[in-house]
Computed example of a mutant assay.
Amino acid sequence: MEYYVKSVVPIIESNYDNFTTVEKNIADYFIQNYKKMDFSAKAVAERLFVSEASLSRFAKKCGYRGYREFVYQYEETFVEKQETITGNTRMVLNAYQELLNKTYSLVDEAQIARITKYLNEAERVFVCGKGSSGLTASEMEIRFMRIGVDIDSLQDSDLIRMQAVFQDKKSMVFGISISGEKEEVLYLLREAKKRGARTVLITAKNKDIFGEFCSEVVLLPSLKHLNHGNLISPQFPILVMLDIIYSYYVEQDKYEKEVLHDNTLRALEEGRTKRRDMFE
């Protein structure tokens, strides 16, 4: 199961809402295709009844210089792999493997380095989300708090909105929204940015408007077109990305942060010991 392939599919998915009707038709073709065939501009144009110019525009909207560069990357996804397990186990593990491949295709190491720099510079960090995204916000708070970050998570709609008033250039705000449409999350990011805070949106949708109020937009793989994507918790792609950010952050002053982490474990263990003693 250990194979990682750069795939253009998650890039297509994250830009899907920006496409025209014709471009969405092209996007659907590349997302849903699982066979290696002739992907030349002429062959695909004839197959989809579109112009070669449309293929070029589509590729550029995905961030490539042209269709040739796009299709070269697309063809790299067709690798041979041996299946050694069967049934539901294989189905679930393959779904996770596909999701990890998508994450690998989207992760921008330079961007992660910038985010960890912002974390080091911030005096106060907030992370907000609703539903399953809110649960991952709480997980992020616990993990980063244990290595010395002054961080709070927010899930309540009113608290998210009220907290926007208190942001300034010393703050950093993470907003988690897979759909990129949670009004409260976007409101906090927008208002925090106005007040000088660093803002990071973690989402599966890439929209031009995000650039107006986000210092960074971290793209997640979409579960929508994933084989058996309904088997995967929506929290998983968020947690994978948070793990990557966490690992980069820990690497800076690694010894100091490991000491802080060990000290929090020790404090928790002392608390458990005292409680046991009280009831013995």
Rank of each mutant, 00 (worst) to 15 (best):
Q155L: 09
Q155K: 15
Q155E: 07
Q155I: 10
D156T: 09
D156K: 09
S157I: 14
S157V: 13
S157P: 13
D158M: 13
D158N: 12
D158T: 12
I160Y: 03
I160G: 03
I160V: 15
I160C: 05
I160A: 07
I160S: 07
R161D: 02
R161F: 11
R161M: 14
M162H: 14
M162Y: 15
Q163K: 14
Q163I: 04
Q163E: 06
Q163P: 00
A164H: 09
V165H: 06
V165T: 09
V165M: 09
V165W: 02
V165A: 10
V165E: 11
F166D: 11
F166S: 14
F166A: 11
Q167V: 04
D168E: 05
D168K: 03
D168Y: 02
D168W: 02
D168R: 03
K169N: 15
K169H: 11
K170T: 15
K170G: 13
S171F: 06
S171A: 12
S171P: 13
V173W: 01
V173T: 07
F174G: 02
F174I: 10
F174M: 04
G175Q: 07
G175I: 06
G175C: 06
G175H: 03
I176R: 05
I176G: 04
I178F: 01
I178C: 05
G180Y: 12
G180I: 12
K182N: 15
K182F: 05
K182G: 01
K182E: 09
E183G: 04
E184G: 08
E184L: 08
E184C: 00
E184Y: 04
V185I: 15
V185Y: 08
L186K: 07
Y187T: 13
L188T: 10
L188F: 06
L188M: 15
L188Q: 11
L188K: 08
L189I: 11
L189V: 11
R190T: 14
R190K: 15
E191C: 05
A192I: 06
A192L: 05
A192S: 15
A192F: 04
K193M: 03
K193D: 02
K194F: 04
K194R: 15
K194W: 01
K194N: 14
G196D: 10
G196M: 02
A197G: 08
A197P: 11
R198T: 03
T199R: 08
T199L: 01
V200Q: 05
V200L: 12
V200D: 00
L201A: 08
L201S: 05
L201W: 05
I202M: 10
I202F: 01
T203Y: 01
A204Y: 07
K205Y: 08
K205P: 00
K205T: 12
K205L: 06
N206R: 14
N206H: 10
K207A: 09
K207Y: 02
K207D: 11
D208P: 00
I209W: 01
I209C: 02
F210E: 08
F210W: 06
F210N: 13
G211Q: 06
G211V: 10
E212G: 01
E212Y: 03
E212R: 13
E212D: 15
F213R: 02
C214F: 00
C214S: 09
C214D: 09
S215E: 08
E216S: 04
V217T: 15
V217D: 02
L219H: 13
L219I: 12
P221F: 00
P221G: 01
P221D: 09
P221I: 03
P221L: 01
S222C: 09
S222D: 05
S222A: 04
L223W: 07
L223C: 06
K224L: 13
K224I: 13
